[in-house]
């Protein structure tokens, strides 16, 4: 193997691109979980966003419209989950799984006509002076707009959860839905909004894969990214900035692994491809073994159904 053949600047530059899909999905899921809802359908919402975003962007020639469509599709999809869990009080784990299974089939169905079609090429921003700084310019300031949108989304989520009344209510619903209900907050409505936000973000994340990162449609192209996003929320102990750190660490490892494959490391490709999943498991183990810390941060009502008794 030839380590020197790896271009480290290029590697660090592609890190942000590799991290963006899971970052988007994870920040959405974080909001959903802070409202006390565990939606395991992230993978299904991502893949739906991926095909809807890709199809619309190809048909209209506009990546922006593609992303908008993906967010709407993801939110609409998540509301199926919302309807079942919030109104019909179904088990959240099982319903989330159903969303993933249905999403994989549904996306394959819509995507039949789009296999092998080449996607758009999304322009990268170029800010005079800043983008031209050596080393830092290509790493940080020469990406497509969505990379920065995802970071803004993290910042906004953090600010809303921490400093606004809406964020406080959302957290109250997640920590104790009976108390929130007694105070007169509409628990179900708030949770539905949180679920829809999570769905929209997962849709964007999926669309980022199909419109920017790959850019192509293949069946099952999310390949577990939704599950990794779920793990990322645990890793982040439900804190927005830690989601960002986690996503970039993960993105870096993914890119490094791909670069090692390309550089011809003497390990079969399949074993290198396992590494993102194994690392995610390892991180989960480390985070949950210090249970006292992580558990204190988990929303108290996570995964419990709310049924107003009166």
């Amino acid at each position: 193997m030839d380590i020197s053949s790896i271009n480290w600047i290029l590697l660090l530059a592609s890190l942000m691109v590799a991290a963006t899909p899971i970052l988007l999905a994870a920040i959405g899921e974080l909001v959903t979980e802070r409202a006390g809802v565990l939606n395991l359908g992230v993978e299904g919402m991502m893949i739906t966003g991926a095909i809807c975003g890709f199809a619309v962007s190809v048909e209209t020639g506009s990546a922006t419209l593609g992303f908008v469509a993906a967010a709407i599709a993801g939110a609409a999809f998540s509301l199926i989950f919302g309807l079942l869990t919030q109104f019909l009080l179904s088990n959240q784990v099982a319903t989330g799984l159903a969303l993933t299974l249905f999403g994989l089939g549904f996306s394959a169905l819509i995507g039949q006509g789009y296999i092998g079609i080449k996607g758009l090429s999304v322009p990268h921003i170029h800010i005079p002076v800043i983008s031209d700084i050596p080393v830092l310019g290509p790493i940080l300031f020469r990406h497509d707009l969505m990379v920065y949108v995802s970071i803004l989304l993290v910042a906004a989520t953090w600010a809303v959860l921490k400093y606004t009344r809406a964020g406080l209510i959302l957290r109250a619903v997640g920590e104790n839905h009976d108390a929130a209900h007694a105070l007169g907050y509409k628990v179900v409505r708030i949770r539905l909004m949180a679920i829809a936000f999570g769905g929209a973000c997962a849709g964007l994340g999926g669309a980022y894969l199909s419109i920017v990162r790959v850019p192509q449609w293949t069946e099952g192209m999310t390949a577990g990214a939704g599950w990794i996003a779920l793990a990322l929320v645990v890793f982040a102990s439900w804190k927005p900035w830690r989601v960002l750190i986690g996503a970039y660490l993960f993105g870096g490892l993914t890119v490094l692994q791909l670069n090692l494959q390309a550089a011809g490391l003497k390990v079969p490709v399949e074993y290198l491809s396992m590494s993102p999943y194994l690392i995610t498991i390892l991180v989960l183990v480390i985070m949950s073994s210090g249970r006292s810390r992580a558990a204190l941060n988990a929303p108290a009502e996570l995964g419990r159904s709310f049924h107003a008794s009166s």
């Binding site: 079942l84 159903a98 249905f102 999403g103 089939g105 549904f106 394959a108």
Partner: peptide, 16 residues
């Protein structure tokens, strides 16, 4: 893929 979606749908209705 229609059958796969069909099977997923079944689980939705069941839980609902």
């Amino acid at each position: 893929a229609a059958i796969q979606a069909f099977q997923g749908m079944l689980l939705f209705f069941l839980l609902g």
